[in-house]
């Protein structure tokens, strides 16, 4: 059952554009977890994980068990961040937005 229902086709296309378009698959150089990355500009980064990738990243797994439901530790995984930087540096991730986003 859908909840907030859009009333136009274009909205569904916007949802796809903003959440899925131009996500580039990046593999962590360390644990090989695969995430989707989008950079609309030099200073803006989105990282879309999957449950499989989360389970594969030792950094996230360790922090999750340590946090134990209390205040969560949300810092990004430094090894994945380095892998993303490497992907930007060798041109695998295009920087830029389609019509503003």
């Amino acid at each position: 059952m859908a909840s907030f229902v859009p009333t136009s086709e274009e909205t569904v296309e916007d949802q796809r554009l903003y959440t899925q378009a131009r996500l580039v698959e990046v593999e962590c150089l360390d644990c090989l977890a695969r995430v989707g990355v989008k950079k609309n500009s030099e200073h803006q980064t989105s990282v879309q994980w999957t449950a499989e990738a989360q389970a594969q990243c030792p950094d996230l797994v360790r922090r999750k068990s340590a946090a134990d439901g209390a205040r969560l530790v949300h810092a990004r995984c430094p090894r994945l961040a380095a892998s993303i930087e490497a992907a930007v540096a060798d041109g695998r991730i295009q920087i830029g937005a389609e019509d503003g986003y």
């Binding site: 909840s3 907030f4 959440t19 803006q44 980064t45 989105s46 996230l60």
Partner: peptide, 22 residues
């Protein structure tokens, strides 16, 4: 807002966003 049976994996998958506000 959806039935538990209708929860899609991407609704709960980790997503990170960072913007340098400079």
């Amino acid at each position: 807002y959806v039935d538990v049976a209708d929860i899609e994996p991407e609704m709960r998958a980790r997503f990170e966003f960072e913007v340098d506000t400079t």
